[in-house]
Design a protein around this nucleic acid. Structure first.
Lengths: 262, 262
DNA sequence: AAGGCATGTTACTTGCGAGTAGGATGAGGC
DNA sequence: GCCTCATCCTACTCGCAAGTAACATGCCTT
């Protein structure tokens, strides 16, 4: 285990480099100063997030993370206080992404209906990414009460925006009257669930899944809809892979892994 | 720590008995034989499930579980092989409950629409109960691959029934055409999410939450529905607490705990 | 060219909690 | 009365992974 970017390159150099690229490990060569340190810190977090999402927090040792980065454990402690801080930061970043996504969309002149859908799209996208997935898959069970409090307030902020949007939609008349609290939870639940079973190389693209999921949430499973208005709910994006009708092949889920629940 | 049901009763006897009742601990006196052993085993599992749901699998030591049962750790090993078996059994029971719930409902002469709603109701109910909640909150990350395989096949069975029901509904014309795969995951996701934040003493009853959640899933958030047919989707049960309109008090979730995600 | 700082490493300590060995206690059968 | 089995306890082992001490290496500054 030597400093990366050295000459002593064993025969697995290509694999090692590939792995470095995959994990976006910046232990190679660069120039800045403080910037690079921050970049490495983020690399630690991102690599950890991936490991957590794949194997779970408790099944991931710091040695595992270090190995993925081609360094040793104490190096990690140079960028991070302890294991908990890693998870805390991963979840915090994920939540911050969700929060910012709402801010990017809300209050820019769109109807509540349009804005809600836009937020949902972003939400679904983020929970399939490293940090966002961490929010869903790992959660905050391993954290201290102190950390949990901080994260909870972030979550509340996101939840509030969802509810306000729904309330506005009801007032504007484009969303059916309902309890915004429950509606927000249901929507967040359905979208979050994507982050639980989604995995790349799964036949379905995250984009398509999100589109159909959102369509279902907005229009419902029941055939009550005689399709009055022409709000575009369906994905108008590039249809990669199969996405439209009932392409139910065999009995496996999109990820090929498990069924519902978990 | 003495064998329960003995005479040496400290001053907290009432509390102890209460706790025993709460956990349904049968370490008292009985008569049967093999039956009682099985009952105790279930008590171990149920108590463990509650502890897991409250504090998470890894934050729950066997000593914790033992303490809740007023026994010591080795006693637990008398009823169970190891910690993993406890979780495995909890999740297995939860999944089996979900599976049986489907069997109770499906194919008894109802329309796909009716049957789907009935299944959803039961699903939502089960994920708010001890073992069902375990399926959602703890998951199977701590289990071995062997155990996971077994549970996955159970999940697939449940998922399959959901999809068949949706397919049937599409054929019957009472459910909007969609990809049954994604629809099943979305529905399961939204309902499962209830098990993640629901907690008794939370103002809203599990029944009401489920009813509104199902209403939303069937009819959608959007106001496309001009409410044609009169399928009863809304909860026709006893309206305990507030349930109808937007009773959004302050910004807290139903459990008073956190927002969405997690 | 020399010292200081940033970055990593090897080799260790340590604590927690899962799991176990072996013994006590009592109920029931003979 | 004695033996056996079921049940539960006290008192341990032990491994894993988090965290740390102390040292190595090289760049950058002056």
């Amino acid at each position: 285990m030597q400093r990366l970017g050295e000459e002593r390159v064993p025969e697995r150099s290509v694999d090692a480099m590939q792995e470095s690229l995959d994990s976006q490990s910046p232990w190679k060569a660069s120039s800045d100063r403080q910037t690079e340190r921050e970049a490495k810190r983020v690399a630690v977090l991102r690599t950890a997030a991936r490991a957590f999402n794949e194997m779970g927090y408790h099944n991931t040792s710091l040695d595992d993370i270090a190995r993925r980065l081609n360094v040793t454990k104490p190096t990690i402690y140079y960028y991070v206080r302890n294991k908990e801080e890693i998870l805390f930061e991963c979840v915090r970043i994920g939540l911050e992404m969700l929060d910012e996504a709402s801010n990017d969309v809300i209050g820019h002149g769109g109807s509540a209906y349009e804005e809600l859908i836009a937020v949902m799209r972003k939400y679904a996208e983020i929970v399939t990414m490293d940090f966002g997935m961490c929010v869903i898959r790992v959660g905050e069970e391993p954290l201290t009460e102190e950390s949990r409090r901080t994260l909870r307030s972030l979550k509340r902020s996101i939840d509030r925006k969802f509810r306000r949007l729904i309330e506005r939609g009801i007032a504007e008349g484009c969303i059916a009257p309902c309890d915004p609290k429950i509606a927000a939870f249901t929507v967040a639940g359905a979208l979050s669930w994507i982050g639980r079973w989604y995995q790349p190389n799964g036949g379905l693209s995250a984009h398509d899944i999100a589109a159909q999921c959102i369509d279902l949430l907005m229009n419902g499973l029941g055939k009550t809809r005689t399709s009055g208005e022409d709000h575009d709910t369906r994905s108008q994006g590039q249809p990669s892979g199969q996405s439209g009708g009932q392409t139910d092949r065999h009995q496996n889920g999109p990820s090929g892994a498990g069924g519902p629940s978990s």
